[in-house]
Design a protein around this nucleic acid. Sequence first.
RNA 1: GUCCCCGUCGUCUAGGGGUCUAGGACACUGGGUUUUCAUCCCAGCAACAGGGGUUCGAAUCCCCUCGGGGAUGCCA
Length: 479
Amino acid sequence: MRLRFAPSPTGFLHIGNARTAILNHLIAKKYGAALVLRIEDTDMERSSRESEESILKDLTWLGVRWHEGPDRGGEYGPYRQSERFDIYREYSERLLAGGKAYHCFCTAGELDEMRKASAETGSYEYSGRCRDLSEEEKKAFLAEGRKPTVRFRVPEGETVIVDDIIKGRVVFSSENIGGDFIIVRSDGVPVYNYIVIIDDALMKITHVVRGEDHLSNTPKQVLIARALGLPVPQYAHLSLVMGDDRKKLSKRHGITSVDMYRREGYLPESLLNYLAMLGWAAEGGVEIMPEDEIAAQIEIGKLAKSAAVFDFQKLRWMNGSYIRQYPQERLLELIEPYINEAGFDTKSVERPWLSEVVALLKGYCETLPDIQKLIGMFMADVNEPDAESDALLRQENAKAVIREARMLFEGEITAENFFSGLGDRIKAGTGLKGKDLFHSMRALLTGRLKGPELDRALPLIGFERCRKRVEYAYRKYAQ
RNA sequence: GUCCCCGUCGUCUAGGGGUCUAGGACACUGGGUUUUCAUCCCAGCAACAGGGGUUCGAAUCCCCUCGGGGAUGCCA
């Protein structure tokens, strides 16, 4: 079994393509198949080497592994279509010589006109007007300076049956695939629908797992294969991923590139998990699963036929769950840049202490940068109260708490005993309890109303800082 | 327009003729734990697009309608 993932390097790796790549990777893993990475860069204007590099980087980050590709070579290379033009030319010549393809002199402009004209009457199909040009006619066009394209002569009355692993048996007729289609542009560069099937055959691909948007074009590819005597792989067309408006996922739906998810603080494991499980369910309805387990359970035929809406909420939830389970060292490493970004220098503090802080805070993070909202209560000397804490601290109950705390910090509270029973002491002094007491204490000592449990946070914040914060609050609110 | 695909809670799905008064997860709502809060636990809300068949029996099979999506490019 040989699989392939064939992105076009015309931008960042998109979530939809990432899912296709992940599924290919997982299936390859399950069956011990080879995964080929092929770069489909025949759109010379839009393709770029930078895109290719970023796609490879994103795939690697996600954990997708391929066995053959432009970066590592392989028996069936080269793996960039732009480096295989000689191969395609041979096939084109064969098609031309056998009368299975012909030169078409229609210009892009003329084609446009024809399309427009037929838009009013109904369906468009290439007229086939260059199908049977005489040598004189061809010469005349050439003399005009026209550069011909090569069109595939679509056989009449032929049926193409695609036995799709996901969709089932899909029947097409050569009558309604739009007429003879272009396989080589006027500049000599071949077109996707033509060479994709050649490469799949030459690279000995046995199973093509790709997006459903390719299903309608599959008969064209099969017809090419028949004309060339090439084998046709097994197909599995994946249903598309859509935005919440049920349109194909695109930029206006928010963040749709893998690159952005990385920067927004998502973990590769959770993105892979989420994308891999979009479209089917594991045994027992388990949602969070390590890659190996997903690979063990996944089956192409079990994947849903219907399109799935991408649910950012669920991804967030899943990511939070991964953050909580993540190996501590690795998490610390990944989350550190976000702490620095919030304006705190992680180099200036003790590593074990920082690790404890992160371990405590990770329970409150769904994405890595979520830590920025809470980290100040540990890193800053005096963490300036945010708006809601500020509002609370201006209330009478809170002022009582502030005064009581100040008294305690000046008297009986010491670095040794301050956090054990601090609440009880303030309670005894003020007569406050429950929310009135603890919310005020939280605002006073952390500057935030939300966060980890005080008796776990306080020891990490430390006596000295708490004392400073009490003093600061006293002057600001209660003096 | 034409061709192709699809249609179970708001979302992802389980279900492949009786065990379905349709199960799980996210979200939402309400409780509980945490002497406070975003974790955690429990409970609740909520769906077989509509209409015809087939069958003793249909979410499951067939047809039609409607709805959604894709293709129809000298993009992939």
